[in-house]
Computed example of a mutant assay.
Amino acid sequence: MAVKVVCAGGGPAGLCLAILLKRQDPSHDITVHERNPEGSTYGWGVTYWRGLLDRLQDHDPDVARAVERASVRWSDGVAHVRDLTTRHQGDEGFGIGRHRLLDLLAERARALGVRLEYESELTEPPADADLVVAADGVHSALRTRHAEVFGTEIAEGRNHYIWLGTTKVFDAFTFTFAETPHGWIWAYGYGYSDAHSTCVVECSPETFTGLGLDRMDEAEGLAVLEKLFADVLDGHGLIGRPGAGWLNFRTLTNRTWHHGNLVLLGDAAHTTHYSIGAGTTLALEDAMCLADALRTHPVLPEALTAYERRRLSELLSVQSAARYSARWYENLPRYIDLPPHRMFALLGQRHSPLLPYVPPQLYYGLDKAAGQLEVLRRLKRWLGPRAARALHVRARGR
């Protein structure tokens, strides 16, 4: 049955949902309202992993192919600490410019017959819509109107961060930690095109004020950061965005994600700390889950309840990982003086709920031993039951 869907927010979540609903039933009347002009977007590049492409392939192969073609990829991680560097091979990661991603999604949505209305902000649900989707970000106007019903809670993080771009194209996901007289400051860098990378800089409040970053204008602040990270920038500059200064990350949660025919999607429903690189992936997964629920549950309240239940369950482990990841960086002095390869290993384990409570050197040893045991378990499975029994007999005979 054709329905009228109105979506507030033309980011990845809103556009993806519009695409999927139109694919399910071309007779649906779908309009996406975006408050900003077409072509204007915040941020630089976003990251994702192969699993997202696989899920997109299941829902819309055309979008999956277009996104993969427009992405760059890497498989290594590099950490620079003082004058030492360590490199490790990891899972294949992808980067794509946020602007490029939105262009691809908007092009696909229009081709399917979705109406896109730019410079159009919804502040209240349209009375004639069957379904109203609030995909208008962390500051969602539609959610704010019913904040008590949704049970919205926002927790502000301790550290300061700023989202920047650079013409230095990193060949790996790059971490760099710089020591200053006022404490440590660090950056995460990753390529998203053949000409640009994203560079997120973070530091504690003490370092932020000690360096005077709280009192500098944009040009002065960028000059300080370029000097601090000169070794990894290789002469390239950092690029800011007018009006987008230093922030404290805000973790947003909601007790429920729907109210009547209004449903929350993406950052309007939840945020997870940027250090796990999952924001765009989770927004697109929300859209795929909601589209699935609306297809399999013809009664709207049942569909919205199924969507909420599934996503709240799936997000539990991700939100936990994000909290512990943010805490790892907030307690950086606990790990920074380890040998670089050990520090980088624990950086990879920063999602662990045990790590904050176990001495770092001890945790590293236990994790390494556990890894060796897993190798032995895999070898035993590979050899098969007969060979494993033979090894056991030999061991007993010694």
Rank of each mutant, 00 (worst) to 15 (best):
105 L>D: 11
349 Q>S: 10
294 L>C: 01
176 T>K: 03
338 L>T: 02
158 R>L: 11
232 V>T: 12
357 Y>N: 05
122 L>F: 10
186 W>C: 07
8 A>G: 12
197 S>H: 08
23 R>G: 06
212 G>H: 14
290 L>E: 02
150 F>M: 02
98 R>L: 08
136 D>C: 08
286 D>P: 07
5 V>C: 07
87 R>T: 15
380 K>I: 07
142 L>R: 02
369 A>E: 03
382 W>E: 14
322 A>S: 14
378 R>T: 13
49 W>F: 14
173 F>P: 00
166 T>L: 02
298 P>D: 10
4 K>C: 06
31 T>I: 08
327 R>W: 14
162 I>K: 09
318 V>Q: 09
336 I>E: 10
130 D>F: 02
225 L>G: 14
111 A>S: 15
364 Y>Q: 03
188 Y>V: 15
20 L>V: 05
219 A>D: 12
248 N>G: 04
19 I>L: 13
75 S>R: 14
202 E>N: 03
77 G>C: 02
73 R>A: 04
202 E>I: 01
129 A>S: 10
366 L>N: 03
285 E>M: 07
261 N>A: 11
181 P>S: 06
345 A>V: 01
190 Y>M: 12
83 D>H: 15
387 A>E: 10
10 G>M: 10
58 D>P: 00
301 P>V: 03
291 A>F: 01
194 D>Y: 04
245 G>R: 09
169 V>C: 07
351 H>V: 00
356 P>I: 02
35 R>L: 13
336 I>N: 05
318 V>C: 10
148 E>F: 00
251 T>M: 07
316 L>R: 10
302 E>F: 00
370 A>G: 03
395 A>D: 10
368 K>D: 12
72 V>L: 07
233 L>E: 08
124 E>T: 15
